[in-house]
Design a protein around this nucleic acid. Structure first.
Lengths: 348, 348
DNA sequence: ATGAAAGCGCTAACAA
DNA sequence: TTGTTAGCGCTTTCAT
């Protein structure tokens, strides 16, 4: 590992290797890329020269030549959120397994920033992109229509029916709500996320469906609109708890809002699950370590990352280039209800 | 954003722009790079041509030419750990602010994997590396000695006294332990992390120092050796709680082990802080949301990322190339003790 | 089986 | 002020 950047020190190139091994650069290239047709003798010479010079092939130069960087872009709203963090793990593991390096980017939930990152990634000539969109706009059509390899993760923009891997949010929310109903709850509130995102919308729909099937009314004041951030969970929680006729159960639509909700609970000295049951979307490592141990809807986060990466690999595959564009459909992953201690039958 | 990878579609290049704008490629290059000396008229022509063709400069080609990629590598043991996640945020924000794109890599706490990633990053010609080392070996000398721009984060390898930004672990652990002592605790246990990592070692030293100053004995059985992973926290916790003469306070050396410890507490039905006080290194979002609300040592995580990135920028700065190598020293960040509800005076 | 040489898209002398 | 051109380090025909 020499610093080609250090003042005088020139980078070690294939030419240096070729010279030391008494062969041509073509031969060096051949052994590097494992092409057969190089005699055993020269192969050894070249390999020795490479270690002696501590040669590291310049992937930048290679990329320029071959037109592929073996690099992909991944945009998430926030690396700090454990949900995305697990997805990232899945993506990275699968990517490296296949010789790809991900370039991770935070959009900070900002569509403008997201556009900017997309442009940068494109200039960096990534071979494809994994996108947890912060926008539901159809601006992605430009990308997808031009066949730039892109697969959506977690959230799918309105109107898209292809190339995405997400959780079955509707089904999961439905099951969760039904579980609460089964426990005997009737006054069930929901703290919803952004409704313009598929994740936000579908979870509400699942809740709604379960409530309707059970002929339970959805009281307007029990329908709280958050924005997936901690603060909104706190605010909505406080609101709910201070009602004259408070809910006996609350379904919180993501991990961050649940954090806020739990703070509201503590501040209001409302015991859980005695007075109110809490069920949260997103499982997290600590949900099972503190009190109350949360009942959660656990998404297959790492799996989501893996599958998305695999789908991207299929789409990027040059083999399929001149055949029909690889029309991958949406993959829906099942979520799992993890029943712990924050849910119980209603107090009376 | 056109897909240059799509079968026939050739990439739009500077030549296309030049042709459409009736200028030379040099002129196009000049306006892209904001060089002055191009007439207003041509500038407009070129800019128009660029948007008309939806031209995006090929950074790969540029990098090959100029010898810098404006890309840095960042290796962390685990993106899934909220501590690293915050550091990453700091790094990325600061990097993008300065026109750099980070390539994030997980070493999975595996020195072998780490070496591999380092080699890959080097081949990718990153301009520098930020490293949260999973090894304390001196293998990094090869890198640093050759002046490859690298700064260590969080953990500094044995013997290194330069180019790192870390927390004042010793001081923080000392303060934390003193706080427990001040509360009246005498039987204070510690769940230590890997002692071959500076973070593991220094935190133990801080604890030791505080205990010695207070003339408190460090009982061998109160000194539990974990490995920074959840399971070890659980195991050590169980061990501690089952003793005939259990500690009245436990100092856990990182967030993961604390998670395990809290599980052990719950399983053993030991009330906190009534029977045992818990103080944890690493603050995390949920530490303040659940019960008991943890008293923690909060590191300046995001700041650590920012500062490390800034230091790297200084080191990579070509201005300093022929002057003395920029000898940055170790930056030590102060931690903050956040007193919450998991600590109280001992029961009797 | 091996080598010579063209060229990927860009920047930066150097010419004009 | 603008254009021509030589590479950056690599892969890949095409000769040998």
């Amino acid at each position: 590992m020499d610093g080609r950047r250090a003042t005088k020190t020139k980078q070690v190139t294939m030419h240096d290797v070729a010279r030391l091994a008494n062969v041509s650069v073509a031969t060096v290239s051949a052994v590097i890329n494992g092409k057969n047709g190089v005699s055993a003798k020269l192969t050894t010479q070249v390999k020795e020269a490479m270690v002696n010079l501590d040669y590291h092939p310049d992937l930048i130069a290679r990329s320029l030549k071959v037109g592929r960087t073996h690099t992909i872009g991944m945009i998430v709203p926030d690396v700090t959120n454990p949900f995305h963090t697990e997805v990232i793990r899945g993506v990275e593991d699968e990517a490296r397994l296949n010789g790809y390096s991900p370039m991770l980017c935070n959009s900070n939930e900002d569509p403008e920033q997201e556009r900017h990152l997309l442009a940068t990634l494109f200039s960096q000539r990534v071979d494809g992109v994994l996108l947890a969109a912060s926008d539901s706009s159809a601006a992605y059509d430009r990308l997808t229509r031009r066949r730039f390899p892109i697969v959506f993760i977690d959230r799918v923009p309105a109107g898209h029916t292809k190339r995405a891997v997400v959780t079955d949010n509707l089904g999961a929310a439905y099951d969760a709500t039904k579980y609460l109903i089964g426990l005997g709850h009737q006054r069930i509130a929901i703290i919803a996320g952004h409704l313009h995102l598929s994740t936000g919308f579908d979870r509400v729909e699942g809740y709604r469906k379960a409530m309707q099937e059970a002929h339970l009314p959805i009281r307007e004041e029990y329908f709280q609109r958050g924005d997936f951030q901690l603060e909104s969970g706190h605010r909505c929680g406080l609101q709910l708890l201070q009602m004259a006729d408070p809910p006996t159960a609350i379904f919180s639509c993501n991990n961050k809002m649940t954090l806020g909700l739990m703070r509201a609970l503590a501040e209001s000295q409302v015991p859980c699950p005695e007075r109110v049951s809490i069920l949260s979307f997103d499982d997290f490592e600590w949900a099972a370590s503190f009190s109350p141990k949360l009942t959660t809807v656990a998404q297959s986060t790492r799996e989501m990352g893996k599958q998305a990466m695999r789908m991207l690999l299929r789409i990027m595959d040059p083999d399929g280039e001149d055949s029909e564009p690889n029309e991958e459909n949406i993959v829906m992953l099942k979520a799992e209800l993890r029943i712990r201690e924050s849910t119980a039958p209603p107090g009376r």
